[in-house]
Nucleic acid binder design. Sequence first.
DNA 1: GATCAAACGTGAAAAAAATCTCATTAGGGG
DNA 2: CCCCTAATGAGATTTTTTTCACGTTTGATC
Lengths: 201, 201
Amino acid sequence: MRYYRFLSESGAKKPPQTITSAQIAAALDIDPTQVRKDFSAIGLLGIGRVGFEVCEVCRAIRVALGFDQRHEAVLIGTGHLGAALLAYSGFARYGLHIVAAFDMDQRLVGSKVAGCTVKSMRSLKPFIRKHGIRLALLTTPVEASQKLADRLVSVGVKAIWNFTPTRITVPPEVLVRDEHISLGLSVIAYHLTHEVDSPSS
Amino acid sequence: MRYYRFLSESGAKKPPQTITSAQIAAALDIDPTQVRKDFSAIGLLGIGRVGFEVCEVCRAIRVALGFDQRHEAVLIGTGHLGAALLAYSGFARYGLHIVAAFDMDQRLVGSKVAGCTVKSMRSLKPFIRKHGIRLALLTTPVEASQKLADRLVSVGVKAIWNFTPTRITVPPEVLVRDEHISLGLSVIAYHLTHEVDSPSS
DNA sequence: GATCAAACGTGAAAAAAATCTCATTAGGGG
DNA sequence: CCCCTAATGAGATTTTTTTCACGTTTGATC
């Protein structure tokens, strides 16, 4: 994951197209052995003295993580955050395509948000069924998230990307990925409060 | 961090105000011992047979993580994501207050985004100096992020919350918290591609 | 072509994290 | 008032992760 980001960024500009585990390790601030271990875990073998072929590695990671497959998703809640996600063009790199956006607010239905027409919640279930959608992005207000999650699961959604600051409960076979920012906030708050101490000591 | 979220959610509605490590562990799906270990690490001692006092724990976590202190921040880049962050009211719970928003686009300067007047980039440095800002939220396009980070560091910003999909490099004493969604995306893509196997096996 | 150095793969060792066990303490019931 | 259960705290144990060390492979150099 971190490898993929780093390699697809750096690999584009460099012609040699090979990289050593040591270089990767230095850039990502980890142990070279770790890199080799991880790579061999997904069936990647480097060659002595040369290292790894960047394109090869990227492809293997794409396959291992499923970025090579097309994943269609719906987005629910076209507020600020929903709009930001719709406008983000980087998802395609990972095989993710947001094919429809929905919102509770009937006044928004029919309007365009980031080039995507907002659909009514009434058409949510039929749409998911018809297109076999398995992933939903939740960017709704807190109150609605749990009920919505239940509805989504009942029509066959297999994964929910939860951007609301709520814990939602689902059957075990469904994946919920919480994208809370509170964790990052913790790290920052901790640093800011304790940062004064470290330089002086 | 997870504790704080859980306790401040559940604690509000329950009068008893005490909770056992086992209850917390069950809710967060971890080991009860882990909870006790973590709590004792920040100087929290439960009492036999009763458990832990919810308010007490919350307060200790707030202090330990620095949520009890006021952190003022500036936000740079008032696009969709910037607007979403400005509109999010949950930051105050963690002591974070976004006191100003800036944008490159001169046409946006002066307009209101989520109740906050957008300021010109020219006033960024003086503003940070004047108010002693130590944290900046970056929600700009990719191209600008590194140059902006350098500028921020040069005027004394001690932490950068990076919402752009770019790695930025800063002096070691400055904290950069990357809020990339690619990691979450990895988890989801992996689940969606491999999910078919697990139920059948 | 033979040698040398750089980088890999792998198995062992060390470190860290999670888990288990148990003695201790504190409330509740008889 | 004493015992019993429920929950803690801390030490021991196990598991996982990270790191180290060494033998092997491969391209470059003489």
